[in-house]
Computed example of a mutant assay.
Amino acid sequence: MIEKLEYLLDSLATAVIVIDDKLRICYANLSAQSVLELSDNQLVGFPVSQFISHDSLSLDRLGAALKSHEGFSDSEILLAFCDGRHILADVTVTCFERNNSEGLSIEVKAIDQQKRISQESQQWAQQQAARELVRGLAHEIKNPLGGIRGAAQLLEKQLHSFELEEFTQVIIEQSDRLSNLVDRLLGPNSPPNFQWCNIHQVLEKIRTLVQLDSAYNIEIQRDYDPSIPDMKIDQDMLQQAVLNMVRNSVQVLSEQTYPGEILIKSRIKRQLTIHGVKHPLVAQIKVIDNGPGIPEEIKDTLFYPMVTGKSNGTGLGLSIAQTLIDHHRGKIDVESWPGHTEFKIYLPIDKKESTS
């Protein structure tokens, strides 16, 4: 009977963890082993606190449930594991009593995938609408700016007073400044120049550029996947996109009192859907820092133009990065919590046609 019960539990997509009255793991089905990324032998007999952070699933609350014999349910919990991973999950805790012993059954249903797809679709539509709005406004601003600058230049020729010419110079300089800002809002105005190359060459250029800046005492580490094949990309566009993210991390870390660390990491992902299109192979580039995290109030609008969490930021770097990655049919995701921010770029890997 017990074997049949375990067989049924192992067939569930929901992770099930059974703990005793000492909060030690008695059983974990296959889904739970997959979520925790540990085998049954590595889990059974060990305290649940050894694997799941106290902050995300309160041990005090589990202890209270045992005493009161009342379970509880929570939706959309950011479940933190002690190895640093996070998942979004619905959690249900149920009390039980068997053979004069008490325990708890913890059901964990990961909802990262469906929530991420839903959020991605919604945010993509919002970003596209915001981008079109900004483009329309930028064009409307740029046309009169040219007229203002030209009028100031004509007026300057008619003036014979150095003091008055200073005012026309201010008009010209400020018009140029606004024109440059509008150009940045519009993004790149040239089509991509796609060529086959190794993305790690691009990442190494970025690492070298940042390390040469001795103004910041920030350690930049790398963890590359050598199995990623050559990809058809615009090297300048990809370099600018990743560099914007690395510089964003550098600026945030430079304001902290503790040592700053940035990790540039590459991996291959399989069968990944990007903007509704499923790709067999995708290159993932991560820029990870140990900064304070992204403020909660700007997380959902982080890639919108003029949105920034920095006092001296323009809010254009990530917006431009998003546009550049869009040219590659890719996407950018971000995960952040205090002490950890992770930007993830996904780029489809096309099959290189044989030239023979």
Rank of each mutant, 00 (worst) to 15 (best):
A15C: 05
D176I: 08
Y258H: 13
S161G: 00
D74F: 11
S161K: 05
C95T: 12
K67G: 11
L59Q: 13
D90A: 08
H86L: 07
D236H: 15
Q122V: 10
E37K: 12
E255G: 02
F81H: 06
I111L: 08
H275A: 03
K205I: 00
A125V: 11
R131K: 15
Q169G: 13
R177D: 07
G63V: 03
H200I: 04
L145C: 06
L62C: 03
E297L: 08
N217M: 12
P348I: 04
E204K: 15
W337G: 04
L88R: 09
S75T: 11
A138Y: 09
Q128W: 01
Q153W: 09
Q235E: 13
N198Q: 14
V210K: 14
Q195L: 04
C197N: 07
K22F: 03
A64M: 11
Q235W: 05
T355H: 07
L12F: 07
Q174I: 04
T92W: 07
Q235G: 02
A151V: 04
A138R: 10
D20M: 05
R270C: 02
Q113N: 13
L43P: 00
L8C: 07
F194H: 04
A129E: 10
S73L: 09
P305G: 05
I87P: 06
D326A: 10
L318N: 01
S53D: 05
F72M: 06
R177F: 09
T323R: 15
Q221S: 11
L12A: 13
G71Y: 09
V210R: 14
H139F: 12
S31T: 00
A80Q: 13
H327M: 08
V250K: 11
L9M: 09
R149M: 10
N29D: 00
H327Q: 11
E70W: 11
K286S: 14
D289F: 08
P191F: 03
S179V: 02
T301I: 10
A138V: 03
E173Q: 13
L5S: 10
L5T: 12
N244V: 03
W337A: 06
V287S: 10
D40Q: 03
L36E: 00
E156S: 12
T92P: 06
Q42D: 06
Q122Y: 14
E3P: 03
F72I: 04
Q128F: 02
V307A: 07
